[in-house]
Design a protein around this nucleic acid. Structure first.
Lengths: 206, 206, 206, 206
DNA sequence: GATGAATGAGCGTTCATTCAT
DNA sequence: AATGAATGAACGCTCATTCAT
């Protein structure tokens, strides 16, 4: 009977991978326990052996997404040829992540906070790490090293917010269909970077 | 029995207001006809006396919000002292609208695309009007009059997207609690405007 | 306001006529009070001024149907050239009535008894009158005059049942679509009549 | 708690039996999932563990009835002493089946066509098999072997329709309560058979 | 470690009906 | 004579979850 073939992979992994597949391909609404059970070839009950609830499963999924994004962002930084270039590359990579995994992005960043509140303490730590990658790139580029949190957090958050706005509108299909997306995102990235420079100058003048 | 004391307010209004409240507090998923009914102190059936369906209710909510936003944006333009100033003011006003009316904003711009699909044709006409206010302000400021749709749509969409990113993250409580919001939004607006100028220069150089 | 134009017609009549129209064209399931209200241009509440309940309305509708059928059957008898011919003509007319008004026939003869039970006493009196037309035709044809109820009721019921079987199966679309309906009903009528004759002979032999 | 004492009977069986009971006692309209659930002492959800939908449940009921009827009809043919006798016996058996199992009969043959439409293709194959038993008996008796479908289908359908009319009226309690049922059905069967013979002679004369 | 059987809560929606005016 | 406002009950169905084994 239970010769569940891919047994080398832990069931937990199998569940997470299948859940991600569903979310990536069809969105959160399509992620039901029964559906998942059928996919993995186990009973629905079995999922509860590895996850306390659907929320917990969702949480784990988001955490993995955050890790994946982190890996992509840090790689992008590593690939950069200069500190200034790194900021642009990290922005580009963030945008690409969102466009590559729209449904996943939605679960990670567009779910209503109510859903999020149920998450355990330290829930956003992983999300924060990604923001820090952006912040660090900005700091390196601007030469200013110290003052980690103050202005840096605002700067990083602003960059993130601007990119997020563009991605989320495109994912939600809220932007005009006739819009040239490449041009749109190029402008978004250029605009975001120019905001950063402008500010550097403004700070220098003070 | 049916005392329904707040009768000065029409039931239709009461429904709309309660629906917005639910959405911002607990998300669209929590907006069910029964829940709404309990909130307003009427039976679920009564809601159908005023709205054909849940979709229609949501639709009405969005239309209302779009009209409200339109009024505020056009007023802001009218108040501006110069064309250049108008762009800044329209951005500022958009941000303020979002922060003042998070419930409207969430329903209008942060709902899952799935809900939107069901809307009747011409659904987004009202939304588009708002984008056009931004676009018009940009065009007036940049002096270029003609070429209404092409680059202008991209520019306006980019401005919108950047502001939207910041507002939606704040509403969703995704930004760090310690963040100075005034500074954050100032930076967003400055950054957005600088993106516009940069482009003006770039175009001038061509 | 209430210039309800066809006011010469009593509202009761208007309701019944509209209800019949709905039933004839779309069947019982389509007959809802709201729908009816819209059709007649009055509020749903107004219907209750003339009918105690939907069941009462349905009942009245059935009674009218029975009257209509009665008129058609007696006319058929009147048209007949001989007593023997009258039986055939009454059968033919019954079949035609069913095929002309399938949805109405359904309400009159194919509704579940549960629906019928709620009808007031003497409910089937009108239905019985129709059976009597058949019975009388049979008696006239067979020459036997007296014994009104005994064997006559059985005979009439049997004739009715056989015709009803064919009609109801056709209405319910239970007979093979490829079946030649004219031939089918001719055979039904011939068979039914032959059963009658056979019996006459059998009785004569006793 | 979930003591569910009649556990020797499978729940599936219990559902099917209860459903039939409801239909014959109160009509299809009274057959709701909740009502059924209450009857069997389980939650409505549990029914869905055994039947995909209400339609599927109904479908299963019909299939079962058709199989049962088929068994009885073929047995009746087997018991017959002559080809001519077989026709009479198959008619008799059909009538007895209806009277013995009014609940099955109602579900199988007296439901509104609307319910039937939803059935999967090949749905009526089982029903057709029963009609074929009648048709085959007629063919054997009349000596004519060939021409399987043409006149034979009409003949079989007519026989079926006549028997059905009588059974359905009795089940629906539409016939006069004072009627002698034995005599009624005897006459129906004799009449039906005589219709068959008449036709045989008519054909012979051509 | 795994499951089949079972469930309560809930969904959007429709219906006939009532009641105060 | 007529109505607008309101409602309770029900519909088929789906969901995450539990529990005894």
């Amino acid at each position: 009977m239970s010769n569940h073939s891919e047994s080398e992979k832990s069931l937990r992994r199998l569940i997470l991978d299948s859940a991600r597949k569903v979310v990536v391909e069809e969105g959160y609404a399509a992620l039901t326990m029964r559906r998942l059970a059928k996919m993995i070839g186990y009973s629905a009950t079995s999922i509860y052996l590895h996850f306390e609830s659907k929320d917990a499963l969702l949480h784990a999924l988001i955490e993995e997404g955050m890790d994946l994004l982190h890996a992509r962002l840090t790689e992008a930084v590593a690939r950069a040829e200069s500190d200034a270039d790194a900021v642009r590359m990290v922005c580009r990579e963030y945008v690409d992540f969102g466009l590559d995994n729209p449904e996943y992005y939605e679960v990670m960043f567009m779910l209503h906070p109510q859903r999020m509140e149920r998450f355990p303490a330290g829930k956003y730590r992983r999300a924060r790490r990604n923001l820090d990658v952006i912040g660090q790139a900005i700091r390196s580029a601007s030469g200013s090293d110290g003052d980690a949190d103050g202005p840096s957090l605002v700067k990083a958050s602003a960059v993130w917010a601007q990119l997020h706005g563009a991605i989320s509108l495109v994912i939600a299909q809220r932007v005009d269909a006739s819009l040239d997306r490449d041009e749109f995102f190029n402008r978004i990235i250029d605009g975001t970077l120019s905001g950063l420079k402008l500010n550097a100058e403004a700070e220098a003048q003070r």
